[in-house]
Design a protein around this nucleic acid. Structure first.
Length: 364
RNA sequence: GUGGGUGUGGCGAAGCGGUUAACGCACCGGAUUGUGGCUCCGGCACUCGUGGGUUCAAAUCCCAUCACUCACC
């Protein structure tokens, strides 16, 4: 069902392609987040035009509202939201564990952020939901331990994740949906290695790297990625969950990661910040009040082709929805171009130079 | 003309005798990484219409004055 081809490698960076029932996805790939079956403020057509061919949506949110049964009745998530590309659904593990749930071996009980009502997620329940949604890639229900989790806690979360992954695999049956396992293990190299072993033994068509970018220092994440790069199977896609700042994407690719997702580009867009080759620009700032140039003169996105920083700043300050639509489109476009440039560099065998040039320009 | 009300930072608005004058908006910064557009965190007042007075102490009480406002004539 899921086809993954690797065309070439440049160092540890991999150039490949994932083929799902709905689209072909060139990797390394960045997946925009459409939590509630929509990439906030943008139409599917606009998201598609940025070059996105797969996006992430959320089990937790869609289960609560409008309900996975309703989405199934609508003909599945793709049809419901009119998205022609592929969809990956997160399992809700990350959300549920942020809600201080009551966790047992069986599952996790949590309160809805919408109305406080109680719900119980088990691996079986989550599979039922993800299968009903009909995403191309489903994630197993995992326990995401926080960045400050000690060894014992990370250890326990790792084993829980393994047990739940087994149960997910046991009940997962779908005509085209692919189930990815998730590696946990906190910030501990020994646990990461062990988790990678446990999960990859189950032979999933792809693997998520979870529990990173949750507050730990970046260099800690990079070191763990270096380790996982050795321990994860070379012929399966590796998905670093929740990562999306330009520098992290470049660093991730350098360490063998194929897939990323993150709310960052769209979230900061909604708060008035945009990506630029030299770093982030807080467009709300007064210095842009009379800046009549586009966000980036070399950017081909709709916002940069048609509007000035001053105008977009005005829209943002005035609370006009067009402002956050334009910054959202720009940020998505920026990251998709970045991934495109990365792929081109790997293809040409010039990734090392690309890496150097990128960080010479981009200020953190 | 008579009677009443109000005058506090760019705007709205607490405080009505006693620490460095709430708060909201706006403004100026910052944050944001598998949940957050309407989010979060900071910053921004030699000063309470003006002039006198009472008091150890006044934005808070008294007098005068100016402005705005309501009612009546």
């Amino acid at each position: 069902m899921l086809k993954f081809e690797i065309f070439t490698k440049d160092g540890n960076a991999r150039l490949g392609r994932i083929t799902t029932a709905h689209s072909q996805i060139d990797t390394p790939v960045f997946m925009p987040v459409g939590t509630q079956a929509t990439v906030k403020t943008a139409t599917p057509e606009e998201v598609w035009d940025t070059g996105s061919r797969i996006l992430l949506s959320n089990t937790y949110h869609l289960y609560l509202r409008p309900g996975h049964e309703l989405v199934k009745e609508a003909g599945g998530l793709h049809k419901f939201m009119n998205w022609p590309g592929s969809i990956l659904t997160d399992s809700g593990g990350f959300q549920v564990f942020s809600l201080a749930p009551k966790v047992t071996e069986e599952g996790a009980e949590f309160s809805s952020h919408i109305d406080g009502s109680k719900h119980f997620f088990t691996p079986e329940k989550v599979m039922e939901i993800e299968m009903a949604l009909g995403s191309d890639i489903a994630m197993v229900f995992d326990e995401c331990s926080p960045a400050d989790a000690d060894h014992t806690r990370a250890y326990n979360a790792m084993y829980r994740t393994r047990d739940w992954a087994r149960r997910c695999k046991e009940v997962h049956r779908h005509e085209y949906q692919n189930l990815f396992g998730i590696v946990q293990g906190g910030v501990f190299p020994d646990l990461r290695r062990e988790s990678a072993k446990q999960i990859t033994e189950m032979d999933f068509p792809g693997y998520g790297i979870g529990g990173l970018s949750v507050g730990e220092p970046k260099n800690v994440m990079y070191e763990l990625l270096d380790i996982l790069n050795e321990d994860m199977p070379a012929d399966k896609p590796r998905y670093l969950m929740g990562v999306g700042s330009p520098d992290c994407l470049v660093e991730g690719v350098k360490r063998g990661v194929d897939m990323f997702d993150c709310v960052l580009p769209t979230r900061i867009a909604r708060n008035g910040t945009v990506f630029h080759p030299t770093g982030k620009l807080v467009l709300r700032n007064a210095v842009y009040a009379r800046d009549f140039a586009p966000i980036d003169e070399n950017c081909g996105c709709y916002a940069c082709r048609n509007y000035s920083r001053a105008y977009i700043r005005h829209l943002l300050k005035a609370g006009e929805v067009l402002g956050i639509r334009l910054t959202t489109i720009h940020n998505l476009w920026f990251l998709q171009r970045l991934m495109e440039d990365i792929r081109e560099a790997i293809a040409k065998g010039t990734f090392a130079q690309f890496y150097k040039d990128f960080f010479a320009q981009y200020k953190l």
